[in-house]
Design a protein around this nucleic acid. Sequence first.
DNA 1: TTGCTTATCGACCGGACGGTCAATAGCTGG
DNA 2: CCAGCTATTGACCGTCCGGTCGATAAGCAA
Lengths: 232, 232
Amino acid sequence: MAARPAEIESGGTGPARRRLAPAERTPQILAAALEEFAERGYAGASMAAAAARAGVTKGLIYHYFPGKADLFKAVVRSCVQPVFSEAERMIAAFEGPKAELLRGLIELAYDRVTAERRERVLFKLILAEADRFPELAAFYNAEVLSRGLALVGNVLRAGAASGEFRPEAADAVGLAPVLLAPAIMASIWQMMLGEERAPDLAAMRRAHVDLVLRGLLQAPGPGAPAPPKRLR
Amino acid sequence: MAARPAEIESGGTGPARRRLAPAERTPQILAAALEEFAERGYAGASMAAAAARAGVTKGLIYHYFPGKADLFKAVVRSCVQPVFSEAERMIAAFEGPKAELLRGLIELAYDRVTAERRERVLFKLILAEADRFPELAAFYNAEVLSRGLALVGNVLRAGAASGEFRPEAADAVGLAPVLLAPAIMASIWQMMLGEERAPDLAAMRRAHVDLVLRGLLQAPGPGAPAPPKRLR
DNA sequence: TTGCTTATCGACCGGACGGTCAATAGCTGG
DNA sequence: CCAGCTATTGACCGTCCGGTCGATAAGCAA
């Protein structure tokens, strides 16, 4: 499992045996390193093993990256960036009641949990290594958390301004993280405990959407206490 | 910082230089190992360093624990147990509206985040090492998460049965994790980003309690949409 | 005091790891 | 077809780590 340097590996077009252009080899190394870091953690990961996963030798990695820490940061950077394009497109394109948009965002977050194990593991990695890499924590804060909070916060403020949500919904500073947290924790529990022992994802999503909309929607009339107009 | 085996250490009564009874040395080693694991992670922690923190040598640790993995598990076990006594006492002793109890539990969770850095770090450790120690994940599930969910779930069902909460509150399977998640995530963000960059704890707590009570309370009368009767 | 038990030390081992470097061989422009 | 550039290798180094073990001495019982 870790002896032959260049052999069968990440199958694709041509197994790319030798002398690849840096633009082609770099992503191979990054992908292999992501696997290695995800499986063994930062300290537990071995440069030689990461190299073997990529079908190269350790020396070559040092030709592309100055050291282990830099490789780690490069892996993180290469993976976190594209996550938000989807949500941002969604918000930009959406027209309709803010409640529907908010519900869509929450459900998108839960769906994200179901898909792409890699991203989940990466989050765990960032969390675990945050104190050893302060700039990594700063990066996560700027590129992931702040962006997510801003996304939700804008929807909240827009809904409050339009009168669709209760005015308290404009308190995005406190509310936005509260709305994001359950989806993230669902992801974490899935990682820790596995699908069968972790809290039920579908039930969480249902209860989450219901709770949020109940708690935020302006009561339509003075009579009924804001029934959630049967959402999905 | 890591050269003298037995010297000045955890100050107290007598620095306990040599030949302690196992009942006295074991907790010293566990405490030192907790510090070491918390600072460097499982793979990054060094047995010799943990020993030095306890003022002993590596060999002695192997006299008390068969190996690194066993030491790690012993550390976790020794720390997680007492966390729940407070909440359980609180629930057992409480009489009054379930909404107040639920609010108290949520605020207790947030307060727990502010205090005792050790427990937070330990949670991070468990999360980071869960896949390498499946029985550790199982232990966390049984002794921490399940207990916490049951706690909240019982309150929810009781409130729904008494008519104080909306009947949907009885869906504890989905709702309980949704209610716990923001407090846990607040703790995680505090660890990752530090007090000043993480989402504001007080604002989260306020928004969280407000959202939950708004979303769960049965509307008192047909007039107002359940104002949260100025809590606290 | 004597002698047994055992907590404690400190030296040691095999190996793995991060990192370095000179040598090699695959491409590409001419 | 050649020559030069550089991607790639593989051997190497110093270090540190988990784990072992025989020697030592602290405490206790008689």
